[in-house]
Amino acid sequence: MAIRVNGTEVDPPEDARVSLLDLLRERLQLTGTKVGCNQGACGACTVLLDGNRVLSCLTLAVQADGREVTTIEGLADGDGLHPLQAAFIEHDGFQCGYCTPGQICAASAMLREVTEGVPSYVTADLAEEHITLSREEIRERMSGNLCRCGAHNGIIDAILQVATEKAA
């Protein structure tokens, strides 16, 4: 078995204690995935596992065996920027840039969750198939990703722009 990381197969670690986060950062030098708490509280380590957002600090690397991991380094097609990455720059959706990869990975999965009709705490009608992505919906759905510089407005603006362009 193997873990596919951004399309490349890598061996699972022999030490079963290794988190997916540490596999990425320390063994594969994919340091775009950040570590802010190692406790699942900040969202900085968010990556995509088979397309779903997970906290890589709370995921053992061996749990990713046979599955597809996408990190910030593998989000865009080719060498360009993913639309979310470009929108974050345009709307100044970061300052220090440390929570940014996690915010962007979480946002990309979050947009898919919305198209699949997954409701949130602020969704008025839980049975509704087509969810309208309001600012409040995005704010609620992104609240697991902390930012201390206070780039919240820019982050929501950037995500809303990409969501609107996708819908158009």
Partner: peptide
């Protein structure tokens, strides 16, 4: 430094 930061390359 925006392109570096959003790509996880900073």
């Amino acid at each position: 430094d925006g392109p570096l930061k959003v790509a996880g390359k900073a």
